[in-house]
Design a protein around this nucleic acid. Structure first.
Ligand SMILES: NC(=O)c1ccc[n+]([C@@H]2O[C@H](COP(=O)([O-])OP(=O)(O)OC[C@H]3O[C@@H](n4cnc5c(N)ncnc54)[C@H](O)[C@@H]3O)[C@@H](O)[C@H]2O)c1
Ligand SMILES: NC(=O)c1ccc[n+]([C@@H]2O[C@H](COP(=O)([O-])OP(=O)(O)OC[C@H]3O[C@@H](n4cnc5c(N)ncnc54)[C@H](O)[C@@H]3O)[C@@H](O)[C@H]2O)c1
Lengths: 218, 218
DNA sequence: GATCATTTGTGATAAAATGATCAAAAATAT
DNA sequence: ATATTTTTGATCATTTTATCACAAATGATC
């Protein structure tokens, strides 16, 4: 009951976490270009952020830089990969073998950033059994077994909005913990499940607020 | 020089603008379901936001509700569409006719939310001249003329990261004002140009921070 | 028509995020 | 060897964002 028994564990703001993958992406790019050392200022200029922001974000996790010099690019990459737990490859499943599902399933850019699509599902008998690269489309009934087999915690939803909630329920029942939803709809899920969304129209509608109106019709 | 000569024009926070398309998306869904009236509380529950947040966001633009009753769904949709300037259809051009470009160009969900892909460009002679639905892929050299012809202010970049900055420069030179970038790279652009990004890996890496480590290898 | 249950819009308050500042450390120049 | 420049990480100040709480309005109920 004394003050030592209730240590304040430093809860790291989610907005900080959300910037780390951006830092990592740019650091990997610098590394690939052969850059060995960078500074919070250089990184800030590349990303359109203040150098103080970057330093403060990183300071939540430790001291990675050297005064007067900056940050060793390869070392900081490694550290960020550890922090984000992407110093390995995570299995991901994909539901919906339509246009978008095909693009995602055949995308080669996931693997070297920590992710691999290990299975694709669809409820259309005409799609089931078809191949996307080396992956055979399976029926949705196979989801639970595949999730268990791969201990898969992450899923992508690429089905029409009208089916997305039902698919989300099936995924959560099967044990999936995080969902990336491409359907233009907000899902209702239990509080322990994380959902993130990708909807290009949301971005377009954000842009048009700042544009001068210039339309085709209506 | 008196205090009346410098009226404080109420600058609306960008974070407020970024939520409006989400509100609109859900309101349209309610409308399609035949719901005529809703409340900030109901909307908040659907979206995982507080009712106060929604009321305050809307209050930046006027009074759209009725005390004791709530909001007329159709009316609020209309108002949000006006505020976001999507009470019409905006022309959008797309650069990159690869897997992702094909999925985007054949996507039918843009039109009724205010956007139409009017042209697709690629620099691969094997792709130029090919058809995606009713759209013929054009060479990148045709970008300036098409942008002028449609007075197009919005473009999508769906080319490899290594080509994205160069394509962005071409688009900006041609007069494009807003870019939605699918390439996993942060673009450098003048301050009057808006860029937004879609990169699923950024979302995955955000998710894994909160997951218990469970990887395939490495 | 008085009472009650809702729900909005908003000023006040609290919390969170960002930005400015600076001592200390490291590298480089003199 | 000393001075100068650079850059981090921490602290403090400011700005921004979110939440709270309530008067006023509305419709329903008795
Ligand atoms: N194509 C794009 O570029 C694009 C862009 C933005 C958003 N989206 C969204 O992504 C999602 C997929 O788009 P798409 O163009 O690939 O659509 P699509 O119609 O080509 O494919 C959808 C697939 O989902 C399958 N499906 C339907 N119900 C299912 C269920 N209950 N269980 C399993 N599978 C089911 C269908 O059989 C089909 O194969 C949609 O929600 C769409 O709004 C797509
Ligand atoms: N496919 C996906 O699901 C997916 C997922 C996430 C991110 N991405 C990103 O989206 C982009 C496109 O991905 P993709 O899978 O369609 O790639 P892709 O290789 O299939 O297609 C890229 C297209 O861009 C064209 N191109 C290359 N350089 C060009 C230039 N300078 N001007 C015009 N066109 C040019 C190519 O000819 C090709 O047709 C990439 O940056 C990729 O990282 C794709």
């Amino acid at each position: 009951m004394n003050h030592l028994s209730t240590p304040v564990l430093p809860q790291i703001p989610d907005i900080v976490i959300s910037r780390l993958p951006i830092y990592l992406r740019t650091l990997r790019l610098l590394k690939d270009q052969g850059v060995e050392v960078t500074s919070s200022q250089e990184l800030g200029e590349l990303l359109g952020l203040s150098s103080a922001q970057i330093r403060k974000d990183l300071s939540h996790f430790g001291e990675f830089g050297k005064q007067g010099t900056g940050y060793n690019v390869a070392y900081l990459c490694n550290q960020l990969e550890k922090i984000l737990k992407v110093d390995c490859v995570w299995p991901v499943i994909l539901v919906g073998a339509g246009y978008l599902g095909h693009a995602l399933a055949s995308y080669t850019g996931f693997e070297h950033r920590g992710f691999r699509i290990v299975a694709v599902f669809d409820n259309d008998p005409k799609k089931v059994g078809g191949a996307i690269g080396s992956i055979i489309v399976q029926p949705v009934e196979a989801i639970p077994a595949v999730v268990r087999q791969h201990r898969c915690q992450i899923a992508i939803i690429a089905v029409p909005a009208s089916a997305a909630q039902q698919v989300a329920n099936q995924l959560i029942d099967a044990g999936v913990k995080s969902i990336l939803c491409y359907a233009p709809i907000t899902l209702t899920v239990p509080p322990n499940i994380r959902v993130e969304y990708i909807d290009p129209v949301i971005h377009f509608q954000h842009m048009t607020f700042y544009l001068e109106k210039g339309c085709i019709e209506e």
